[in-house]
Structures are given as C-alpha cells and as structure tokens.
Design a binder for these strands. Structure first.
Lengths: 198, 198, 198, 198
DNA sequence: CATGAATGAGTTTTCATTCAT
DNA sequence: AATGAATGAAAACTCATTCAT
C-alpha cells in the first residue's frame, strides 16, 4: 500500500482515539502503519507536516462526502431539501468515523500561521461550495416554486451551519439524546420554517 | 492577590492563546502569574488539577453570565426573547474573552474518567437550567400570547443551541463575517420563525 | 516538650517507617512534630544536621542500653554470660523499635567526611566499651574459673559481633524464623563453645 | 558493548560510591555509561526497573560466586571446611567490589511490594542453597568422620551467617582491623568449635 | 521564637528528530 | 529506501531552604 497514505490513516485513527492530534506519537504511528519510525521521516519531514496532511485529507473527505451535486435534477424543493439533509447526515457520520475536524483542532495543532491560513481558507472554500450547492440545487428551486423567501448568503450560512453542527454533535456523542431519524425530521421542518415565504 | 485564582486566570489566558490546555506548561503559567514554578504546586498538586479547576471556573462563569433569570417579569414574549438573545450574546462575548469551552477540549484535556463525568454532568446541568429559564421566561409567555406553537424540549434545545453556538462562533473568529447587531437580529427572527404558531 | 528532641524523635520514627533517612522530608517531620516547617530550621541548620543528631541519639541510646555494667558483681561466669546475652537482646529490641543503625545507613546519609569520621569513631568507642564490659564482667570470670581459654581482643570482638548481629537481624525481620528464647539459648551455647578452655 | 549491561554496571558502581541506590541519578548513569539520558530509557522504562535489575544482577553474582559445589569430592571434613571458608572469602571480596546487598538496601530502594517479595524470595533461595551446599559437602562429612555433633538447620544457619557477615564486614571497611588470612583462620577455628562433637 | 508561603535547582521521564547501517 | 538506536531539549514534579511577618 501507499506508505504515505498509510501513515496519514494511522495517524488519523490514533488521533481519533486519543482525542487530540498532539497526543499522537510518531512511534505509535509507525507501529500502527507497520513501518519503522525512521521511515515516517522519509515521507514527511516533521510531525507538523503529517498533521497538515491529515487535515488536508479530512477536508478532502468532507468535500467529497458533503459536496454532492448530483441527483437533484429531477427533484422539487421539498425532496431536494430532504435529500440534502439526508446526505449531510451521512457525510457527517462518515467523517466522524474518521475524525471530527473542529476549528479548534486546527488552531491547536497547526503551528505556522502561514499554514493555518491555508487550512482556514480551505475550510472557507468548503463552506462556500456547500452554500453554492445548497443555493443551486435546493434554495433556487424553493424560490421558483414560491416556497421560500428571498434572503442573503449570511442568513443561508446560518441555516446550513445549524444543520451541519447538529449532525456533528449527534454523531459525536455516544449517548445521543435524540435518534437520528427524528433529528433529520426536525432539521427538515426547521429549515422549511426558516426559509418559508411569508 | 489570590494566588490560586491568579494561577487559574494565567492558565486560562495561555490556554486561549495556545488553543489547547495541554500545550500550556507550568513554567509559562508561573511566569505569567509572576510566581515561581514551585509555588504553582503549593496551590495545585498537578497540572490535571489546574485544568479541572479552570474548567470549573469557566463553567461557573457561564452559569453566572448566561443563566440570568431577572428582568423578564414585565416584558412580553417578543421583548423577552430580544432580551434573552442580547444576554446570550453578552455572555458569550465575556466567556469567549476568557476561553471557549468545547466538549472536545474537555474530552482531550481531562484524563480521569471520573472527573470527566463530573464535568459533563455540570455542562448538562447548565443546559438544563438554560432551557428552564428560556421556557419559564420566554417560551411560556409566547404560549400565553398565542405566538408560539407547542413543542417539546428536544426541539427547544436545538433552538437554544443554535443561538449559543452562533454567538460562540462569531466571538470566536477574529474576522467575524457578520456584525453582531445584525447577527442578533437574524437570530431573533429565526427563533420567532422556528417557534411561531401556525 | 523540648522541640529539638521532638524533631529528632519524629525524624527517627519516620526514618524507620520509610526505611531510609534520605526519604524523610522536613515537611513530614514538621507535621509529625506538630510544628511549622520554618521552626525546624530554628533548631537545626540543615537536614544533614538533623541526621547527624539522630545518629548521635541512637548511638547514645545504644550506649545506655547495651553498656550496662551493673549487676554482674555477684554472678559467676555462666550466669554473667546469660545476663549479658539477655541484656543484649533487650537492648537490640529497644533500639530496633527506634531505628536500626547500620554502618551502611551512616555512610549513605552523612555527606561530610569530617562528620562521618566522628560518627564512626563513636561507633568504634561503643564497640570498645562493649568489649571492655564483656571482658571485665564476663570473660575475666571465665578465666578465673578456668572455663575459658585465653585469647585476644580480635577473637572476642568476633564473638560479640555474632551476638549483637543475630539479635539485630532477629528483631529486624517481621517473620523471625526463630523464637527469641531459643535464639538466646543458642547464642549462649555458642559463646560457651567459642570460649571454652580446651 | 551491551548497553543494558553497561547501564547496570554504571548504576552499580555509582550506587557503591554513593552508598545508596536512590541517590544515583539517571543523568550520572548516562554520563558514566557514556550514553545519552534518553538512551537509558530505551533499555529500562523507569529508574525502579534499573534498581530491580541491579539487585537481580548482584544476587545472580552472589549465587555464582558463593554457591560452588565442585571440588569437595576428594576432601575430608577439615579440608572441605577450609575450602568453603576460602571460597566464601573470595566471593564476598568479589561481590563487595561490585556492591554489597544488604537487606536494608532492598527494603529502601524497591517500592513495589510485589517486587520486594520476589527479591526477598531470591535471597532466601540463596541462603537455602548455601545451607544445602554446606550440609552436603562439609557438614555431612563431619558427621561421617565423627567430628561434628548432630544439630539442626537453625543452628547451622547461624554459623553460616557468622562466616558470611564477618567477610562482608571485613571487605566492606577500608581500614580492616584484621588481616584476611587471620580472619579465615579464626573463622575456621570457630566453626570447628561450634560444630565439634562433644 | 514561630511560621508557612515562596522558591528554584535538580530529578525523572517523554518524544520528535537524526543518522549510521 | 528502510530502519531503529541514540539523543537532548523540554516537561512535570519534588523538596530543602529562605525570609517576611
């Protein structure tokens, strides 16, 4: 297998277990990846570089999993929204199995401001693309169907954040207080209410 | 000055800067507090103990700042909600200046399961009290005035989390994309929409 | 009570529990003595000084307990020897309740060579006096009664060390393999054999 | 060279100089062994582990040096005893050059009761084997030759302890008051007297 | 005299990183 | 390329000693 990827995946898994990237040691990563400690440094020049790669990888995964643009063509507003929410839930579940990437985690674990900026830019990109997909595939239909009111990006961002964060929280906690089917229903209803034309 | 408090405050400030409690060193704390390294250990028997105290302190602050029960008596539903949101914003601003306490941060930084449980319990308490205050002072009036629909605690919790987290995020980021006045307005509108009687 | 003595006694007791003088901390001593840490330094200028005082105290005790010169007048050789052995046993028991002072312990715990020399000299004095008492009160009678052979101090020292050390060891160990009555009998017999005139 | 052994030997030498194992620091050990501090922890996971290894090593040495079973076959009682004593002397000299292992030292330096028990058991084993060798090769011949009286193990143990301790003491002290040839003669005579058939 | 808060030098231990093989 | 032995800087923590009150 690709050693570089194997290192990233091993690191990721250990970070999830430990609850923090800083607590993962190179020795552990090497053991989990089944290679020598020195070999890690053949592929990455420092622990920081691994962390950045891991963050990159997770953001990439989020992009792939969340930012789905297909399958909306034939659906109306209501079904599109249902699909969007279902997809967001599935995506958050998959990502969470790997690692939850909090803004905090990045701030904590990346030392160089320069790199921090790049990472934050990627996250902003992700959110922008998410917004674009939502607008193009769901919100726009709502407008055409006269079901939603006209608002601005700021407002829509808040709505999307509500969805993403609730799913993150629910996959995060072991003792979810709310079953996920119901949570999807709630969020569907709430989104409808928040966007409904007067 | 009270040394114990001074240590907690120094630790907190450094944790905020570093973005993580584990990265704060006792040496730094001692320097920031203007005392010797050994002195820190006169007041706390281990770093873990300091961390727990810091978490306790922040939860205490949150309780004091968020959970305000006064001044709602003479207000109707709309004004009560405005007041609640304004207060939540002020509280999140104050707490954030100190340190934002994420679920993650606790999971990462507290080692002993026993203590973790206590801390999580305190957070749950906080959320329950917050819900109670919201129901008693705002939601109940909405019901009386016929302005809100009848729903359950789960739904209300999601609404309250929306408010708290948006404020946390907005005070969190240096480059807030949204001015806070406007955010309050948005959240007021959104809450109204989410609770509005059909 | 005399604070100085109280410090010495507290130190001694703690040293016995810990099994080593170095592991006793001034804080513990102060607590045990019921005084402040600073007060300890009113009576002793350093931990080393306390240790030396403790050693002095124990040597003094040994002198008082072992070096008994009385009560031999009217006894013959055999009874004198019995008495000597009984006394050695009692003494070793009393001292052991306080602290066993091994040559090693002194070497380990006293840092300044000068003081070490003084202490070793005191121990040599003790042994010399012990020998003198044994010769004057027991061995001399044996010679007069024709029961013992003529030998030199070196030989007698070995015999006396045998007695002292067996008692020390037996009071030392919790699971003494031999009951003390019997041990006294054995040592009496052995001494007789070792000194017996051909 | 074998680093693990080199660490043990360095530790041992320093412990001998300092007179106590607890006072030896890892830094000193590393310097003496000519390696880095971190390297010590590649071979031992803690200071306690080193101490246990050192004790093990010394007990092993004692076993090898003291418990010699050969060369007694063709000798009679008297010569066997002479040989036994000469060997005990040589052994104690060799071990002492390394480190004298006192019961005290173990009690002080080993923290975990479990390990303490193992060590004490090893020492008991050593003493039992020593007794067995003495009985098989020396005492039994004395019985056959009618030169010694019949006695029990307790009595024999005291005799053997006399020998071992006198040699330990004499090699221990820098200013031995007695030359070693003479000491061997004394102990030979004494053993004969203590065991002699009436 | 008595105190204990304050201190920092010194200790054990961890771990990212290097480098000879 | 791959390795893991070796390293030392840095971290948490201890404790004899000082000194203002």
């Amino acid at each position: 297998m690709d050693k570089k990827k194997s290192i990233i995946l091993s690191f990721m898994e250990l970070a999830k277990e430990a609850g923090s990237m800083n607590e993962v040691t190179i020795k552990e990563v090497a053991i989990k990846a089944g290679i020598g400690k020195g070999t890690v440094y053949e592929y990455f020049s420092s622990k920081e570089e691994i962390i950045v790669s891991v963050i990159d990888f997770v953001i990439g995964m989020m992009m792939d999993l969340y930012l789905i643009d297909d399958g909306y063509e034939e659906l109306g507003f209501n079904d599109s929204l249902r699909k969007y929410i279902a997809n967001a839930y599935e995506a958050s579940k998959s990502v969470s199995q790997i690692m939850t990437l909090q803004h905090d985690q990045i701030a904590n674990n990346v030392k160089m401001q320069e790199i921090k900026d790049i990472v934050f830019k990627k996250i902003a990109d992700f959110q922008n693309q998410n917004l674009k997909i939502f607008k193009d595939n769901i919100y726009k239909k709502g407008l055409l169907e006269g079901l939603v009111f006209e608002t601005n990006d700021e407002y829509l961002r808040i709505v999307l954040r509500l969805i993403v964060r609730e799913f993150q929280d629910s996959t995060h906690m072991q003792d979810a207080p709310l079953d996920t089917e119901k949570l999807q229903d709630y969020l569907y209803d709430m989104t409808i209410k928040l966007l409904k034309a007067e």
